[in-house]
Design a protein around this nucleic acid. Structure first.
Lengths: 142, 142
DNA sequence: GTTACTGCAAACGGTTTGCACTGTC
DNA sequence: GACAGTGCAAACCGTTTGCAGTAAC
């Protein structure tokens, strides 16, 4: 959990106060190895007897997104999920069990080509692969 | 609008009835050269004095998606948008004016590689590029 | 002490649903 | 004539907001 100090640092540098609630949310984001919804964060907070309102979770997540600390991802179901911004990567999602796996970027140089071709200034790209994970393939066969 | 006949055909083949409402929705989807939200379809229907309820629009869009006739796209804002499924392509979105431009796929063979590498059965992938279109870049400078 | 932040409750907006009626096949 | 599809109104659920009280700096 030494990472937490880095993130607290980042908050302070941006002039954002380090409240208990924000630290608790950051902790969960750091611990989670997959994108996580506001609701999921909320229930994990509930478990750990630190009482934080759902609206607070949303407010802070949105602020983190605005500050570029957190990325908001919209998946096929209606729920948005959030992850810490550290490296550039993409996601492979199992359509059966919703497991999300990070993937390295197969389009490293492509943005420049695209920019030349279209005249757009490319700011970011997002890729999602959808499929069936090995486990769920097995389950389907049996 | 000769395309419309093809789509009607596709509905019939799937045993879906060709109601006025469905035809009207299909027409709008065919005419639109960019993904379009349920609300937008609804207002266009309203203009053309064919009265269709918003819930009917949603019900039919969902059915079309289930039948593989229409693709549902989730963009960064909360609204989902829909487009007819005809070819495989991706989207380039302007963050200022929300213009959506189709793009050919830069990852034609990648799915196979990924499948070998991860053991996943890859069913589809979606890519979105976000940036500023030439017009909006100009506007920002001035 | 100031002012950003939180709790709380209520609103909001996109989407879905239940039910009686209607129109397609 | 049967049954899928529609209109209508109400519910649903993720998310946002207004306001008064609280805590970080």
């Amino acid at each position: 959990m030494e990472q937490l100090l880095n993130w607290e640092e980042r908050l302070k540098n941006k002039g954002i106060r380090c409240t208990k609630q924000r630290i608790a949310i950051l902790k969960i984001l750091i611990t989670s190895d997959t994108p996580i919804s506001a609701q999921e964060i909320f229930s994990q907070l509930d478990d750990s007897n630190s009482k934080v309102r759902l609206s607070t979770v949303y407010r802070n997540l949105n602020q983190f997104v605005a500050e570029g600390i957190v990325r908001k991802l919209n998946f096929a179901d209606q729920k948005n999920k959030f992850e810490l911004v550290d490296d550039h990567h993409h996601h492979l999602v199992c359509l059966e069990c919703d497991e999300v796996r990070p993937l390295e970027c197969p389009l490293e140089q492509f943005d420049n080509q695209l920019s030349t071709k279209t005249g757009y200034k490319i700011i970011e790209h997002r890729i999602k692969f959808y499929g069936l994970c090995p486990k769920c393939q097995e389950n389907k066969e049996s």
